[in-house]
């Protein structure tokens, strides 16, 4: 499944790198501790977090995440957005909390339709 499908199904707002939504999402990682994300997430994961500072772009880029979804209506900080544009990493925003959004994405990724 690509990011675009997830964006459409879950009504996410795309904040940057809108041209880069065809990437395949192979899994997910939910968490706000950057060291955990560095240690345990995988290439192709969609990362669900509420952190908004620019380090998230560095982490997503290093780990080759498919994209980042910010929960609880958190908006990326201006320098985060700037850096994500440079690195061409899609950042999306959801009004859902991490549990609910994770539940829905897990469902999409594990259900064959």
């Amino acid at each position: 499944m690509d990011i675009e499908t997830i964006v459409k199904k879950l009504n996410l707002k795309v904040r940057c790198a809108a041209a880069n939504l065809k990437k395949t999402v192979s899994g997910g990682y939910t968490g706000d501790l950057l060291s955990d994300v560095m240690a345990k997430s995988h290439e192709g994961d969609i990362w669900i977090t509420r952190q908004v500072h620019q380090n998230i772009v560095a982490v997503a880029s290093l780990k080759d995440h498919a994209g980042i979804i910010l929960v609880n209506s958190c908006e990326p900080a201006p320098d985060t957005l700037e850096r994500a544009i440079q690195e061409n990493i899609p950042i999306m925003v959801s009004e859902m909390n991490a549990f609910e959004l994770t539940g829905k994405i897990f469902h999409l990724l594990t259900t064959k339709d």
Binding site: G31, A98, T102, G103, I105, F106, H107
Partner: peptide, 12 residues
């Protein structure tokens, strides 16, 4: 399980 999987399984 990681949080992603934990939340996903409980939600399901």
């Amino acid at each position: 399980y990681i949080l992603f999987e934990t939340a996903g399984r409980l939600y399901a």
